[in-house]
Design a binder for these strands. Sequence first.
DNA 1: TCTGGGGTCCTAGGACCC
DNA 2: TCTGGGGTCCTAGGACCC
Length: 536
Amino acid sequence: MREDASVMHVDADSFFASVETRQKPSLARTPVLVGGTGPRGVVATANYEARAYGCRSAMSMAQARVLCPTATVLTPRFPAYAAHSALIMDTLRELSPLVQPVSLDEAFVDLAAGPFASDPVAGADLARRLIYNRSGLVVSVGLGRSKLIAKLASDAEKPHGFTVVTGDLEDDFLLRKPVAALSGVGPATDTTLRRLGIVTVAHLRAAERDELVRTLGEAAGWNLYRLARGDDPRPVVVEREAKSVGAERTFAEDLRQWELPGALDDVLARALRRLQRHGGGARTVTVKVRLSDFTTVTRSVTVAQPTSEVEQLREAARGALTAANPTEPVRLLGVALSGLTHWAQLRLPTPEDVETASRADGQSTATGLLESTNGRPPELLLPSSESPTDALVAHPSTEGAGALTEATTVDVDAASPSSADSLDDDEERLPAPLTVHTCSVGLDVAHEAYGAGWIARTADGVVTVRFEGPGTEPGPERTFDVRRELLMRIAPPAPCPPRRLTSLPSTAELTAAAPPALAEGDTPGSADAPAPDPSS
DNA sequence: TCTGGGGTCCTAGGACCC
DNA sequence: TCTGGGGTCCTAGGACCC
């Protein structure tokens, strides 16, 4: 265990909602909910104004609307969040090469590996200032000797926290925490621990190791035994290989039997797009079916060789769905692709492969491989752009190297016969005309005369657009009938510095001010100049 | 007012091999 | 005829994270 508190955890406060209020000035200081807007939507993020009404993440949107009827409910705009996330991560990488993103809005940084090794507190302070000055987003920061402590520290004073827990303060800080604050203790484990009379980390530390292992299992028991002692040697690691990719969809209304194959193709198409992005192939296709009574069944099919062939993966998915055999109406369908590799079998396997497949998994697998060839030339293993493997070289080819193609040329759209209009498409091309089917509150649009804005309300093809952006004052609203007037859906605005900020807020100001007031740039002496970039 | 979507990891049981 | 035990792979479910 290191001596200095040089592990930093950075967490953007109510991230999705904060990006929204940054880009929609009229929403500043008003309650905002971001999440599913459909009948079965849940809240992804509630800003602090909405939390004041009791709204929380993961709550059903219907409930949140009841709690806070005045809240603006926005459809998530992932491209905007991804752009802000990238800016945050890039900024952190200026402070250390060891940055481990945990999600779009969270990261661990090992400051001991960078220029702030001798003064991690200064590094952490700079991190929050740089992020604020470049994006207008406020983060909470925690510093500790381990990930465990850093994470708890960033959580200690949200929003806007800046908490340093040095070694000598660690026990004092840790032992008071409820066990549920520990990463790895969710509702189920919390209940189990409560039955043992364990509520705080102090209780947990007093517990017998054997009892923890007995009641929670080998891994979880040991893990909590160590965490209770502040023993967390997990290093900050830059990148980890993805183990699976997938997609799932909850339907507005439960699906009947006959609707399942089409819906499965839809979900599979999205999963395949992610596989395509990952590059290479997958061996196992897992289909998840959630019934109307919320019971969930998963069935999986594993093929002999990793593949990126649409037909073969679709066949596997259909087989898994059949095995799941849903007898009730279905509310959710999911497809996960695992056993990922950076290469994939795209052509007829060699006789040796078929033999191996037969031995490994019976005749159905071998048949699947054969059927997927469609009379194309025999061959072969495809390299990804990143990591060609020896397997490729070792694999005999009868048609020559000309048969080699990028795995990313797989025709994914062949798996998706549904409308190109769907908002599900996470790789849609913009700009594109707004249609009755693509109106969603929160989306970015532009009008030839009025410029860029966002959809504030929508009903039956009639949309109200508020024309404003991150660099403007709150703007006016205008209403259009999208069947008669052209509105273009456009990409979200890029992240940008907050307006009218001429000096970095001091640590004291950052800690004292509420986020909305700060975001307005109410620093004394502020003018209309952009924020200086202290890194330059 | 019923409960999203992207993932990771763990457990337990069965098949199979040696 | 009955019975080992370890290792690996696969599957299904569940807990957990954000």
